[in-house]
Design a protein around this nucleic acid. Structure first.
Lengths: 197, 197
DNA sequence: ATTATCTATAGATCTATAGATAATGC
DNA sequence: ATTATCTATAGATCTATAGATAATGC
């Protein structure tokens, strides 16, 4: 699971900040970043809006903390991952609609102008594509079906993960996200046939 | 092209409404729906915010008009479409970052609670999956690579289109959206081999 | 006459700052 | 002493309503 508790002991202040970040994740899931008010986040942890600003001086500082916290990709960038671990990650995500909704909402907002998460996502996606390429190379070698290379398949893999999340969030009854993702892996796992250089 | 001008003659009022909708598309691309103020849209067509409300009584009424206008999928739902037409659509989209950004921002927002576009997208995606399944069936028949059926491949196709759009909007230099989409079609177009029932 | 647009404004928010008070940690 | 939290409030917005004036269409 893409977790990992940092240190054992936390100061009272760190504890409070963590609480606030958790509340912010929830509120962003419900209303997006632009729609999330500091007052709504504060209320959820029993603080006034001004009390919250003692811990995070600006709304953007809070967003940065949210993005740093544990984004969905933290567990990914390792070439020792295998395809079935990716499938497990998707399965795990399907049990946590809240966090998926938070990041899907943020991703959507981030393409608008001057959004404070834009740079974060741009860099993150570059890194994720690279790491997915290395996962695919380790799993399937240099030659994939359709004449693809790992580098060309990587953006498709990422696109499928993200795109399925939106369909699933909108209509979980109609979209079996983990099954669909396994279907995609089945496409990539087909025998590419003899070398046709 | 996914166009189609309705009638030849428009009243002054219809003309004005169309202008406003166009401006709203732009402003939503820049700031999302929640971040788009009526005043910003009004200013773009040389009106006051109150003047705009004469044509659309509420902000939500304006959003409804935007969604009705010409959403990216209007051109899709036809089983006579072939895969190469889908590829052309993606290529065409790559020339219109504005409209893609509008709908990507709206899709992202729509997964948040009580968003006025949520139902629209939920229904639209159901219809698009169905129509994509029929396109895939017409193109590749009943059996696709990886043991997939057209119905199981359809959500993947839609996911790839959407997911690639986000990656491309965030970093157009790094992501060749049309090429990546053709790569995905190449995966679907592989010979599924002999029947292994 | 009807439609389009404007001025004025109510009533809610929102982020952020200033400065006072309460709680906690040496 | 320092940290956490509160009250008060400035200064911007935002959507929407009310009612007046200007423009257009018979």
């Amino acid at each position: 699971m893409p977790y990992g508790d940092a240190m054992a002991t936390r100061t009272r202040s760190e504890e409070r900040r963590a609480e606030i970040v958790r509340a912010a994740l929830d509120v962003i899931a419900e209303r997006g970043y632009r729609g999330a008010s500091l007052a709504a986040v504060a209320e959820r942890v029993g603080l006034t809006q001004q009390g919250l600003l003692h811990h995070f001086p600006t709304k953007e500082a809070l967003l940065v903390a949210v993005l740093k916290e544990r984004d969905q990709w933290d567990a990914v960038p390792d070439s020792r991952w295998r395809a079935d671990l990716l499938a497990s990650l998707v399965e795990y995500n399907a049990m946590r609609p809240g966090i998926i909704q938070t990041f899907s909402a943020l991703l959507g907002e981030s393409v608008t102008e001057g959004h404070p998460a834009r740079e974060f996502f741009t860099e993150r996606y570059g890194a994720v594509r690279a790491s997915m390429a290395s996962v695919l190379r380790a799993e399937y070698g240099e030659r994939l079906p359709g004449g693809l290379t790992p580098e060309r398949a990587a953006p498709l893999l990422v696109a499928v993960m993200d795109g399925l999340q939106y369909q699933w969030l909108l209509d979980p009854e109609s979209v079996d996200m983990p099954a669909a993702f396994r279907d995609f892996l089945a496409l990539l796992g087909e025998d590419p046939g003899p070398d046709g250089a």
